[in-house]
Amino acid sequence: MNRRHIPLITELPLVIWLVLVWGALWQDFSPGNLVFGALIAYVVVNFFYLPPVELTGRFSVLWLVPFLGRFLLQLVTASVQVFWLAVTRGPTLRNAVVAVALRSHSDFLVTATGHAISLIPGSLVLEVDRSTSTLYLHCLNVASVEDAEAVRRDVRATEAWLIRVMGSSRDLAALRAEEASR
């Protein structure tokens, strides 16, 4: 057992998540069941070792709600759009691979941004460059350089929202400064 000891506080979010999964799967949130779930979660977390995920230590529910609203809206419009493209355009589609440089250098935030834009139809993460936090996206229906610029702006807006929800305070300060200078 020569693994680095992880403090309990770092794995606490994972344990809580596993307890919630346990409760949801049994459809039973009684205290006894949750305590047993917590016991199993603790054993699982220590037995099946994962590298600790470094969270940014900030989470704002106040920004989460509008972010979810924006996400759902984009999900619906983009899904309908892909449907429409499949029916009307089909084989005559033009695509592009676009590089988007993100602001944040936190692995967690880059992952979250990549996830969010992959879920919204029309863009797909092909490669990630960790050293410069650049995402390479494959985008549907990009016919010109202006379209690519629009994609880039959109992705950076999504990242800005995620920074507001759960970015580190340094990223948040940088974002505020950027907005103030504009």
Partner: peptide, 30 residues
């Protein structure tokens, strides 16, 4: 209908990566 979108996209889009868009994404909403 979202499943149907995936099916139509799979058949009509020209290459693998554009098919990916049609196949995986509408399912999230579906």
């Amino acid at each position: 209908l979202m499943s149907l979108a995936a099916g139509i996209g799979l058949v009509r889009f020209p290459d693998l990566l554009s098919r990916m868009h049609a196949a995986t994404k509408p399912q999230v909403l579906g």
